[in-house]
């Protein structure tokens, strides 16, 4: 119908149900329910130690998902994040390791290595963005090829060997929760504000919703697109810093299996793969949900093959629930 009559109030029970289903907190409730059901089943699920390990494994995924959200909102997709992790990890390791580090062991070695990692992450994002915005190549193919290319470079640089003997001060940045948690929280907060409260954020949504309208409305579409990929690359570099710190080695296969988790967490968190929709708060809960499942299945002592299968099934279930709640939110 072209003419929508003014919308009347729906039945009394629909409205609260609708607003609940449509809110970001839906996934949080889902996580809580899951937690309550699993607590009696999985030994040690509700312990402090487990909570800490949960948070530790959550932070890198959170940063990746937040960066991915920026890209998805702008109407693209970034499959290259895991390659960015590998590449920056390897570069950082090569620069700072105590045996043959490029930067030696001077006072500037560690800040230099971190800067190098950030610059490399931003650089990968910049190249992705440039190819997509300037050459108008499809984001899926661009980031897929850059996934192949940069993870290839990471493997080639190290001849497929992990790099050990990293200085403890370096690994502490990501490995110690006291550092990692505030940094991740701050970055997430800034990314949230940037998306919801700034001109750039509005522009991202506008480009993702309808790039032609955005162009006619004077939005610098290309710059905005490049920005999204640079942010994704930067956050992937920080995630790499965390993962490298946690593993205490730099490795060209670091984070290799995280891509699926990143996409799953963002989609469950309410970000649309078609662009123009999604919020950081929802993504935070999506990440929590994914990691909760991972963690609980590990505690249940399940075989890793079963974990893989269960995770697949849970992702499907969550995606289906998400579609269902969207429908509910659209009702009335």
């Amino acid at each position: 119908m072209s003419s929508a009559p003014s919308r009347p109030a729906a039945a009394a029970w629909v409205t609260p149900l609708r607003s609940w289903a449509g809110s970001d907190f839906f996934v949080l409730v889902l996580s809580a329910v899951y937690f309550l059901i699993l607590t009696p089943l999985a030994p040690g699920f509700a312990s402090t130690g487990n909570a800490l390990s949960l948070i530790t494994s959550l932070l890198p995924l959170l940063l990746l998902a937040v960066g991915q959200t920026w890209v998805l909102v702008s109407g693209g997709i970034d499959l290259s994040v895991t390659a960015t992790i590998a590449l920056t990890s390897v570069l950082g390791g090569l620069a700072v390791n105590e045996v043959s580090g490029w930067l030696g062991s001077g006072p500037f070695a560690i800040p230099g290595a971190i800067l190098l990692m950030l610059a490399a992450g931003a650089g990968v994002g910049f190249l992705n963005g440039l190819a997509i915005a300037r050459l108008r190549m499809p984001p899926f193919m661009v980031t897929l090829t850059s996934l192949m290319f940069f993870s290839g470079v990471a493997v080639w640089l190290t001849q497929s060997q992990p790099i050990g003997s990293l200085p403890p001060t370096f690994t502490a940045f990501g490995g110690r929760l006291g550092w990692a948690l505030p940094v991740a929280a701050l970055l997430t907060w800034v990314a949230h504000l940037g998306l919801s409260r700034t001109v750039l954020g509005r522009w991202l949504y506008a480009v993702g919703q309808n790039a032609r309208t955005a162009e006619v409305s004077g939005v610098p579409v290309r710059t905005v697109t490049v920005c999204a990929y640079v942010v994704s690359g930067l956050l992937a570099a920080v995630a790499s810093l965390f993962l490298t710190g946690q593993a205490e080695t730099a490795s060209p296969v670091l984070g290799q299996r995280m891509l699926l988790d990143v996409i799953a967490a963002t989609v469950i968190g309410g970000v649309s793969l078609y662009g123009g929709q999604g919020r950081i708060l929802g993504v935070l809960f999506g990440v929590l949900f994914i990691r909760l499942i991972d963690n609980s299945l590990n505690l249940l002592g399940l075989n890793f093959t079963l974990i893989l299968m269960t995770k697949g099934a849970v992702i499907l279930l969550a995606a289906w629930l998400d579609g269902w709640r969207r429908q509910l939110a659209r009702m009335a």
């Binding site: 949504y205 506008a206 919703q209 309808n210 032609r212 309208t213 955005a214 162009e215 409305s217 123009g276």
Partner: peptide
């Protein structure tokens, strides 16, 4: 519909898009 509006976006977002800066 094609390049005048973002159909899925809100009235407010559409109205303010050009003058955001």
């Amino acid at each position: 519909r094609g390049d005048g509006l973002s159909l899925e976006s809100s009235i407010a977002d559409n109205m303010t898009l050009v003058s955001l800066p």
